[in-house]
Design a protein around this nucleic acid. Structure first.
Lengths: 130, 130, 130, 130
DNA sequence: GTGGTCTAGACCACA
DNA sequence: GTGGTCTAGACCACC
């Protein structure tokens, strides 16, 4: 699994790490039981402080995507599949989609872009859609 | 056009204003040539500093959605500035969609949610535009 | 509102702060809209680092008990009343109650102790039970 | 008596063992004079280090719930060591109950949950003891 | 002036 | 050797 952080970006480093782990899980690059690199190792690789990585991992733990323990390290948990899309997700999606439509992109194109992105996840995930 | 800001929310006020203007444009509530309320008026309505409103309008100007001038105030510009989705939009969309998939939501459900949101824009658009 | 921390205790300082805020909310000492002391102020009062207080406040924010913002500081939110007792609460309660019973305390006495504690909350909360 | 440990859980293994023994004593599954499995046997069953089991047993010994000796192994002691609830138990209970009340759960519901848990102990106790 | 992010480095708990 | 806690101090974003 490959993670890249942009130290000069406006988005917080811990958020970048969190986002890339989320995407890796969606892609299937990380599956249930996969272990993430140790906090301090990842920090050393990026040349950043381990507290920053810790914050990213803690976020993922709060979201129920990974489990942290001193013995096993950071382990990806089973996808919960417990619920529907939370309201704050829908709110963020509404704003994002509105942004595209407001720029004059046809709704069909926006939807197509979403489908393409979603397909890219499934393709990697299942290897049965070539 | 109605804007509501939640002074106690975790999302910055200027972002809330910007988002609601974007959504209003997508809905068709605001169309090309529509004028937004004067900065100081809007600030007074919400009881917030006019710098905050100014920041929101400046963001919209940077995105090419409105034009600012001393004489005409804030005017919504023609929509078709970009024909393609910018890469940072795709990046944000990828993260958002991955978030849903990583939580175990089926891709079809996610796509359906997107379609529903997009349809809600068009519905309002056609009502208000003819 | 009075908070005391024991620097020498085995329970983490941030947890002590979090627990006392939770108890203050249950007691009614802190109600919806009450503001907690600024992170750095509280840290200075206790002679501890502001990061420690920050962690406590962040925990409370995750639990939905307070809202944090740069302008309003830490504000107690409305009690959600959205759900039943979560399963992990029940698990902790089971262990705690078992602890008392295993020591030979009659179940009635344990229940009575629980009622007394709960009554002490209500008494302060409503001022109608003197 | 059946003990289950979740090696991947966030709660320390020694704590899990200790908690389950406490609950078994409360239930009446373990009564005065019952012997717990030898440390090394239990450790082998779970595939964990015997120091971990040792720590759990030592905790129980400190709490006066079991007696350790080379000859007899770990034996459950008479329950009636304390007649009153220790202050740290009350403190933990206060925090736990406050947690529920602060989330908006009515005090009656919380008390009812406690009674249900306590009843579940007694039910098992009487079944197994006559 | 508030909280948010990041760094650097210490010691502890668990296994 | 892992994550967890705490300290000390820096700069930034928002208002």
């Amino acid at each position: 699994m490959i993670i890249n952080v942009d130290l000069a970006a406006e988005v917080p480093i811990y958020q970048q790490i969190r986002d890339q782990v989320v995407e890796a899980i969606a892609h299937g690059t990380l599956t249930e039981g996969s272990t993430l690199p140790p906090i301090r190792t990842l920090a050393a690789d990026f040349g950043i402080n381990f507290h920053t990585v810790n914050k990213a991992y803690d976020l993922l733990r709060q979201e129920g995507l990974i489990r942290l323990s001193r013995k096993t390290g950071a382990v990806v948990t089973a996808a919960a599949t417990d619920q529907y899309l939370p309201s704050d997700w829908t709110a963020k999606a509404r704003t994002l989609l509105a942004e595209a439509v407001a720029r004059g992109i046809p709704a069909d194109d926006v939807l197509h872009a979403c489908r393409t992105l979603l397909d890219s996840f499934s393709a990697t995930q299942q290897e049965d859609k070539p």
